[in-house]
Amino acid sequence: MIRSVGAYLKIRGTEMFKAIFALLSILLLHACVGSPAQSNAPRLPTDAEVEQYNASVPADEHIVCRDEIPVGTNIPRRKCRYVRDIQQTSTFHREQLRRALQ
């Protein structure tokens, strides 16, 4: 009897473990693919909204939004930046590279 109860608990434990594993997997996947609207992150502008904004400001205030794949993950994330910031970062990296090569 004790043995059969032990076997029963063992079977139930395995099932429970499987269920918990499945639940965790679903939660993990959901966290990966969840839309920004469901999280606390602010909603980033759509391509049309970006274009509408860019049409009404000077060229140096334009923004660019695109999907980028950060290091350490394969999940693309939408990033929006000012063109002037991209320009500055680019200049900075070129300078760094030039220094390193000298």
């Binding site: 759509t46 660019v64 063109v83 320009q87 970062t89 680019s90």
Partner: peptide, 21 residues
């Protein structure tokens, strides 16, 4: 503006997305 480029396909896809939106 240098230091920033967009792939040919990326630009086409953007036009498609904007039109659709």
């Amino acid at each position: 503006v240098s230091g920033w480029t967009m792939r040919h396909n990326e630009t086409l896809e953007m036009s498609y997305r904007i039109g659709k939106e």
